[in-house]
């Protein structure tokens, strides 16, 4: 099991579980980070923190610690699609 925080730039993965609690968790779900959603990390490695992700056509920026609460599965190369 991996998390969004470990995703490399240009790579995609599928969300399996959204952790955290309260409004933080609800907002993540509502911006579309529900189980089964494909997420792509954008930007460069050196950016470090916060991280940018592409979810359903929008760019969303999360702190590394928050991204770590979104569990993912299967990293696919964006170029292969």
């Amino acid at each position: 099991m991996s998390s969004l925080a470990l995703l490399l730039p240009g790579k995609s993965a599928w969300v399996t579980e959204v952790g955290g609690s309260g409004s933080f968790r609800r907002r993540l779900l509502e911006i579309g980070l529900v189980p089964g959603t494909e997420v792509t990390r954008v930007g460069v490695v050196a950016q470090g923190d916060p991280l940018n992700f592409k979810v359903r056509g929008a760019t969303v920026c999360l702190r590394r610690a928050d991204a770590d609460r979104v569990l993912t599965q299967g990293s696919v190369a964006a170029a292969a699609k």
């Binding site: 760019t59 920026c61 999360l62």
Partner: peptide
């Protein structure tokens, strides 16, 4: 700690 969910 407060979470940041920013949309660009």
């Amino acid at each position: 700690s407060s979470a940041t969910i920013l949309e660009l």
